[in-house]
């Protein structure tokens, strides 16, 4: 099976001459469907750039990006837009929802942009909201929702339809830890259904929800966690106690 997301020695350089900034250096990353990968690193480590390149919002300077086996570099702007609304879902730290559209309209928007009739799209949107426990909030506008609810609606929008890739940039950065945990639970749940998730964060508590944590420093992948042991290991009295 091909990976839902694959980055092959991706580099990104901003600016040129004396103002040149190397945001990513030869990054390799592969995320299987159903896996949630966290990218951790201090600010300026290039983790947000990694996310925007993976989501076809920006071009890599060198290297190859594959989403669902399709190479991004040969695609036209319109093809990329189509790929985004069909296969890629984003959750940002804040400002995810379009003001003026209700929660369910926000969720249905990617489908409608893809040519699905409004009625069908909104039914699908409502279903996605129900799965995230937001069935009562469907007709509310973003400014009538709490921060946690907004992020949950954003996740619903990111997974509605047949999405392959869920990209999140500090999805719970603006939330308290309880709401943040709820958001991460939903991200994991979405991944269990077969979506490949990438969450970018500097918060170890959020990163610990992932199956794998990749550490980024100065645009380079420096390390990653081993596949986790079973949780039972914690219950053995550790030698230090």
């Amino acid at each position: 099976m091909t990976a839902a997301l694959e980055l092959r020695s991706v580099s990104k350089v901003y600016g040129d001459g004396p103002t040149e900034v190397q945001a990513l250096r030869e990054v390799n990353l592969s995320v299987e469907a159903g896996a949630l990968v966290a990218v951790m690193g201090p600010s300026g480590s290039g983790k947000s750039t990694l996310l925007t390149i993976a989501g076809s919002l920006e071009d890599a300077t060198t290297g190859e990006v594959l989403v669902g086996g399709l190479t991004l570099s040969g695609m036209s702007r319109n093809d990329r837009a189509r790929l985004r609304r069909r296969a890629i879902g984003y959750v940002f730290q804040d400002f995810n929802l379009l003001a003026g559209l209700t929660a369910v309209e926000n969720v249905a928007l990617p489908l409608e942009l893809d040519g699905v009739a409004a009625r069908t799209a909104q039914a699908a949107g409502m279903e996605a909201l129900e799965q995230l426990g937001l069935s009562d909030q469907g007709s509310r506008f973003p400014d009538q929702l709490s921060g946690g609810e907004r992020q949950r609606v954003a996740i619903a929008r990111a997974v509605v339809g047949d999405r392959r890739l869920l990209l999140a940039d500090e999805p719970s950065g603006a939330l308290d830890s309880v709401n943040g945990e709820a958001v991460m639970r939903l991200m994991r749940a979405a991944c269990r259904r077969g979506v490949a998730g990438v969450v970018v964060t500097h918060d170890a508590q959020l990163a610990s929800w992932a199956d794998r944590v990749v550490f980024l420093r100065d645009g380079r992948v420096v390390d990653q966690t081993a596949p986790p042991l079973g949780p039972e290991s914690l219950l053995e009295p550790s030698p230090s106690q």
Binding site: M1, G34, L70, A87, R193, G194
Partner: peptide
């Protein structure tokens, strides 16, 4: 988790439903 079938980007730009959604917004 269902096995992922082949990803298709398809064609078109959403047509009338997309324009309606944008206009509504």
């Amino acid at each position: 988790a269902e096995p992922a079938d082949e990803l298709e980007v398809g064609t078109g730009d959403g047509g009338a439903p997309a324009r309606r959604a944008i206009t509504r917004w």
